[in-house]
Simulated assay, not measured.
Amino acid sequence: MKPWILGLTGGIGSGKSAAAEHFSTLGIHMVDADHAARWVVEPGRPALAKIVDRFGEGVLLPDGQLNRGALRERIFQSEDERRWLERLLHPLIGEEIVANLARAESPYAILVSPLLVESGQHRLTQRVLVVDTPEHLQLERTMRRDSVSEGQVRAILKAQAAREDRIKHAHDVLLNDGDLEHLHQQVERLHQFYLGLRGGQP
């Protein structure tokens, strides 16, 4: 039987990666949209050439890889440039994700994506799990993890869907406001529940 697809999302610093990792240790096939986003701009792929045509050599590192920091700076300053980049990359990322999900052999597979709702990737899934965290914890965790300023984290939070929007699309919400062990217990409980579902539905 073909596995059904669970979409896993959450804002920056919510702990969605830690949750995804734990699902993975339980034997669930995992596709990370961020990884797909990196693959489509590898040197030699058509998307990277188009990005350089548009933004110039300044968005490349000396070894020919994409300089994400430089590109991020350019698109955060301009809504139009951000939209152009999304129009280029979203379809390619979608194809990469679909191909990878098709290789799944676990009872269900997980698509992890910070922009699951905003990018329309939730349409590839049968069920959506949101890892939700109070905003003060998101700020604290991200600043600690990435050594960035509160202003930078707030800008990213603003670009991502509001918590309310995300939760509106959720079938399940995992509240991650405790320690890692608490998170793992909730993942295991959901995993048992998901094993009993057919096509993502009870």
Score class of each variant (00 low, 15 high):
Gly69Lys: 10
Met143Glu: 15
Gly120Val: 00
Glu73Ile: 00
Pro91Met: 00
Thr142Leu: 04
Leu66Ala: 09
Pro62Asp: 14
Gln65Lys: 15
His136Trp: 06
Leu71Glu: 12
Leu115Gly: 05
Glu118Phe: 02
Val131Asn: 03
Pro114Asp: 09
Gln126Lys: 06
Phe76His: 05
Ile93Ala: 09
Arg87Ser: 03
His90Glu: 06
Glu73Ser: 07
Val117Thr: 01
Glu135Pro: 02
Pro107Asp: 04
Asn67Leu: 15
Leu111Gly: 09
Arg145Val: 06
His122Ser: 09
Leu71Asn: 09
Arg82Asp: 10
Leu115Arg: 10
Glu118Ala: 01
Glu96Lys: 11
Ile75Arg: 01
Trp84Gly: 01
Val131Phe: 01
Arg141His: 09
Gly69Met: 00
Ile93Gln: 05
Val98Ser: 11
Glu105Met: 10
Leu115Phe: 15
Gly64Val: 14
Arg144Gln: 13
Leu85His: 10
Met143Pro: 03
Arg87Gln: 13
Thr125Pro: 08
Arg145Tyr: 11
Arg123Ser: 10
Phe76Glu: 07
Val112Lys: 11
Arg145Cys: 06
Asn100His: 11
Leu89Cys: 04
Glu135Gln: 03
His136Val: 05
Asn67Ala: 14
Phe76Gly: 01
Val131Gly: 00
Thr142Val: 13
Leu124Arg: 15
Arg74Tyr: 07
Val98Asn: 09
Met143Gly: 11
Gly64Leu: 09
Glu135Tyr: 05
Leu129Lys: 11
